[in-house]
Design a protein around this nucleic acid. Structure first.
Length: 297
DNA sequence: CTCCATAAGTTGGTGGTTTT
DNA sequence: AAAACCACCAACTTATGGAG
C-alpha cells in the first residue's frame, strides 16, 4: 500500500477513535455522522488489512495492530499539525477570525470589557462569540473545534484538555445601601438571620457558601435562587436580601460591601483548550489576551 | 437500550475532453 | 493556455436493521 493511495484523513479518524473507543462519540468530535466514521473505519481496515477495533463491553477496543501503530500515527499528526501552524503566521491585526468562547455571564461581565477594549485599540478585525457550554459537552466541543476556549471552574478533567488558572477571587457579602440592619460589619448570627440570593447555573444542589456553613453546623435561608449573576444586583437594590459574591464583581456595583464573618474558599476560574490547539498561534494569542484581561481585575 | 453496520440517495470535487 | 462542460466517484447524509 502506497501513501498516495491512502486518504490521510483516515489517520485523523484513527486517532480520535482510539481516544474515544466509541464511534458515535468519535463522530461528534469530528463533526460527522456516525455512519461516516463507520465507513471511514472500514476503509482504514482495508488499508491495514486488520480489524483495528473490535466491539466489546468496554467499547471499541484496539487490536494489537492498532496498539502498535497509534504512537507513530500520533507523532506524525502532531508534526503535520505543527507544520500547518508554522506556515500560517497569525497576525492579530489582519485576521478576521471569530473566536468561540464558553463562559458564564460573570466571566463575560468581568473579562469581555478589558478584552474588547484591547482589541479595538489595536483596531483588530477579530470577532468574539460567547455562549455557555455545559461541562459534559465542553470536551467534545473543544475537541471538534466548535469552541476555541472555555472558562470554567477547575472541575473539568480530560487527558486531551489543557488548562491554566485564570483568576482567584475571595467572596464578600453585599446588601443595598441604607439596609436597615446591616452596618459596616456583620456577625455570623446576623448573616444567618438574613434572607439570601443564591446564584447557580444548576437548578438545585448546595452551593459553595452553603457547604461551608454546613461544615460549621449552620444553614441560611435562600429566598431566591437564580441562574445568572447579573440579575442579582437589581434584586439586592430593591430588597433587604443579602448576596455573597466574588469581591471583584462587588467592587463594580453600587452596593454596600461587608466582609464575610466566616472562612470561605476562593472562587477559581480556569481557562481550557484542547491539546490540538496548544501550538496554534491564534489560540495561544487569545489565551494570552484573556489572561491579561483576567489579571487586570 | 445503546451503539455499530448497511442501504439508498445526494453532493461536491476531480479529471478528461471539448471549446474559446 | 485558459475556460467550460460533463461524467464519474468518493464520501457524505438519512433511514433502518441488527448485534451485544
Amino acid at each position: 500500500m502506497r501513501l498516495d493511495r491512502v486518504d490521510l484523513n483516515l489517520f485523523v479518524m484513527f486517532d480520535v477513535i482510539y481516544s474515544e473507543r466509541n464511534l458515535t462519540r468519535a463522530a461528534e468530535v469530528l463533526n460527522l455522522t456516525q455512519p461516516a466514521v463507520s465507513n471511514a473505519l472500514n476503509r482504514l481496515r482495508d488499508v491495514f488489512d486488520d480489524e483495528l477495533f473490535v466491539r466489546n463491553p468496554r467499547g471499541m477496543e484496539p487490536t494489537p495492530v492498532a496498539d502498535n501503530i497509534i504512537a507513530q500515527v500520533r507523532e506524525a499528526l502532531t508534526l503535520l499539525n505543527f507544520s500547518l501552524n508554522e506556515g500560517a503566521v497569525f497576525d492579530p491585526l489582519r485576521t478576521e477570525k471569530t473566536f468561540n468562547l464558553s463562559m458564564n455571564d460573570l466571566s463575560e461581565f468581568m473579562l469581555l470589557p478589558p478584552l474588547l477594549e484591547e482589541l479595538t485599540q489595536q483596531s483588530s478585525q477579530i470577532k468574539t462569540r460567547c455562549y455557555y457550554v455545559s461541562r459534559d459537552e465542553l470536551v467534545k466541543d473543544l475537541a471538534s473545534g466548535q469552541l476555541d476556549l472555555a472558562i470554567d471552574a477547575p472541575l473539568v478533567n480530560s487527558p486531551n484538555l489543557m488548562q491554566v488558572p485564570l483568576s482567584s477571587e475571595d467572596y464578600v457579602c453585599v446588601v443595598r445601601e441604607n439596609h436597615p440592619e446591616v452596618k459596616k460589619k456583620i456577625s455570623i448570627e446576623q448573616y444567618i438571620a438574613l434572607d439570601h440570593v443564591h446564584v447557580s447555573s444548576r437548578r438545585s444542589g448546595a452551593g459553595h457558601v452553603d457547604i461551608a456553613l454546613q461544615r460549621m453546623g449552620l444553614s441560611r435561608s435562600i429566598a431566591v435562587r437564580v441562574q445568572h449573576y447579573m440579575v442579582a444586583p437589581r434584586i439586592i437594590e430593591h430588597t433587604d436580601l443579602a448576596w455573597t459574591l466574588p469581591r471583584a464583581l462587588a467592587r463594580r456595583l453600587n452596593l454596600k460591601i461587608v466582609e464575610l464573618p466566616f472562612e470561605l474558599a476562593t472562587l477559581d476560574w480556569h481557562l481550557y483548550w484542547h491539546k490540538s490547539a496548544d501550538n496554534d498561534q491564534a489560540n495561544r494569542w487569545m489565551r494570552e489576551r484573556l489572561m491579561a484581561a483576567a489579571s487586570q481585575q
